[in-house]
């Protein structure tokens, strides 16, 4: 469904992504793992057709996605309807006066019928029905995230791209979101720098290394067992610790931030 071939992205001469190649099948979920600054968000924006690679090709359902192609209004509408992205910062994704309008916005954009019914349906799923007439700006971070997700899922995309979806959430909402995403059967690419989250979100992971290349592509379980790779990805660190007066050294995972 999604095929990336040797995607390279440069910004001001600096390499952000270096020859990234992998593909994602229909209804497959993958976690894009890597520390901050390896280019995860950039890659997601390329897959969403927002920015375009300096080199390499990107195919969606066999069709190459280029800047020129997306200038075609009919294709642009088809592509945006099918590939949707949840940005990291929910604040920038909100621009309608009420939660209702926020969810209805995409529906109107893509000429859906029965808008009322659909808005209520999605609001119900996300447990935000009581806020429908409220301004989305007054909600908490987790609730805002729910509104954003509802407004994106309402247009029934085939591919959902999520950029660090849990980074602004409290542990309870994080747990809820993980369960929700696990039950959703559409194609998904989720970025995170959080190791323990990776295993909960998907079976397969693509890990970007500090050299901006694909370091690993395979089962999350196997990756988590491979100490050398974990260190190479800079996802774990060796720390000196003191426990009950005894000094020792062990590997340390940094997450649940």
């Amino acid at each position: 469904m999604i095929e990336l071939k040797d995607i390279t992205y440069k910004n001001d001469g600096k390499i952000i992504l270096d020859k990234i190649t992998f593909s994602v099948k229909e209804n497959e979920k993958i976690v894009l793992l890597g520390i901050n600054g390896v280019g995860k968000s950039t890659l997601l924006k390329i897959v969403n057709g927002l920015i375009f690679p300096s080199d390499g090709r990107y195919y969606y359902e066999g069709q190459e996605i280029t800047e020129k192609k997306l200038k075609d209004k009919v294709f642009n509408k088809f592509f945006r309807k099918n590939v949707a992205m949840l940005f990291q910062n929910p604040d920038i994704m909100i621009f309608n006066p009420t939660v209702y309008d926020e969810i209805a916005f995409g529906l109107k954009q893509f000429d859906f019928d029965k808008i009322d019914e659909r808005v209520n349906y999605w609001a119900d799923i996300f447990g935000i029905s009581k806020y429908l007439n409220k301004s989305p700006f007054d909600l908490s971070g987790g609730e805002k995230q729910k509104v954003c997700l509802a407004s994106i899922l309402a247009i029934e995309p085939k591919v959902l791209l999520l950029d660090e979806p849990t980074s602004n959430l409290d542990p309870k909402t994080t747990g809820w979101l993980i369960d929700f995403l696990n039950e959703l059967s559409i194609t998904m690419i989720i970025t995170t720098h959080n190791l323990s989250m990776a295993g909960e979100l998907a079976d397969r992971t693509v890990v970007l290394g500090e050299n901006h290349r694909v370091l690993y592509d395979g089962k999350v379980e196997d990756f988590l067992k491979d100490k050398d790779l974990l260190i190479k990805a800079n996802l774990v660190h060796i720390h000196k610790h003191r426990h009950n007066g005894i000094h020792h050294v062990h590997y340390h995972v940094h997450d649940w931030d």
Binding site: K73, A84, M85, Q109
Partner: peptide, 23 residues
Amino acid sequence: LFMKSRVVKQLSFRDYLQIYGHL
């Protein structure tokens, strides 16, 4: 970028006012 990702129809001047107002 987010607007690019979500807006496919020509918006009216009124829409723009609302959007920029909230921004």
